[in-house]
């Protein structure tokens, strides 16, 4: 929203797109998407890391399927205005399928990511990243995949940094009415200001 990261993909190199998705156009701190899990699951470092990796995983896989659905089903049938419904159905069924597949074939990965998977369906960062890469920017396949992985990494970075700060603020002696969400929001505000400092890097 704030920084235009180039139209139609071809003009900007994939490295620049990925760098901007992680740092200067961070999904949480400058696009304001995915804030519910960012605030809610950042109390402990271990759960923040788990949530972050689950988001990268689901975002990468769902972007591939959403891209295929949009370009090979919706566009040829001229149903592209249904993209919201198509994408969220792809994401919801994918999350459900991943849960079943992981439980069956990779119990270690399931025990690490399993509890975060149901929460991911309502994480707007996943749908937001698919919308912006596929519909708003109309990236090609490789760019969409790179953008989605980088967006997930940006989410991981933001939530891990916040979890690190919250370990300190939870012990700090602050007014009672600021305990919990308010102090976390103010921490996030200061983090967003720090990340806004990167905004000029790609413009030059």
């Amino acid at each position: 929203m704030l920084v235009d990261i180039g139209a139609a993909g071809a003009a900007v190199s994939i490295v620049a797109v990925m760098f901007s998705a992680v740092i200067s156009n961070n999904i949480v701190l400058s696009q304001y998407q995915g804030i519910c899990p960012f605030l809610g699951v950042s109390k402990k470092m271990s759960s923040a890391v788990g949530m972050g990796f689950a988001v990268i995983f689901v975002m990468a896989i769902s972007s591939v399927f959403c891209w295929l659905v949009y370009n090979y089903v919706l566009l040829p049938l001229e149903l592209d205005y249904l993209y919201t419904m198509a994408f969220i159905l792809v994401i919801a069924s994918l999350v459900q399928m991943l849960e079943i597949v992981l439980k069956r074939f990779s119990p270690t990965l399931y025990s690490a990511l399993g509890i975060y998977l149901p929460l991911i369906t309502t994480n707007c960062a996943i749908l937001g990243a698919a919308n912006s890469a596929i519909v708003y920017q109309s990236y090609d396949f490789l760019y969409t995949f790179g953008f989605s992985v980088a967006t997930g990494v940006g989410f991981l970075l933001a939530i891990v940094l916040l979890a690190g700060v919250r370990l300190k603020t939870d012990k700090a002696d602050i007014p009672k009415c600021f305990k919990g969400f308010p102090i976390t929001l103010i921490t996030a505000a200061i983090m967003a200001m720090a990340f806004a400092g990167f905004a000029g890097i790609l413009a030059g």
């Binding site: 304001y32 007014p175 929001l185």
Partner: peptide, 24 residues
């Protein structure tokens, strides 16, 4: 305009603290 976008988190945080204060 770009600076004003930063206010989202901080105003929401302060309003919630105010709400908590009044409820307490």
């Amino acid at each position: 305009a770009a600076a004003s976008n930063m206010f989202g988190f901080i105003v929401f945080g302060c309003m919630m603290a105010l709400f908590n204060f009044l409820v307490q």
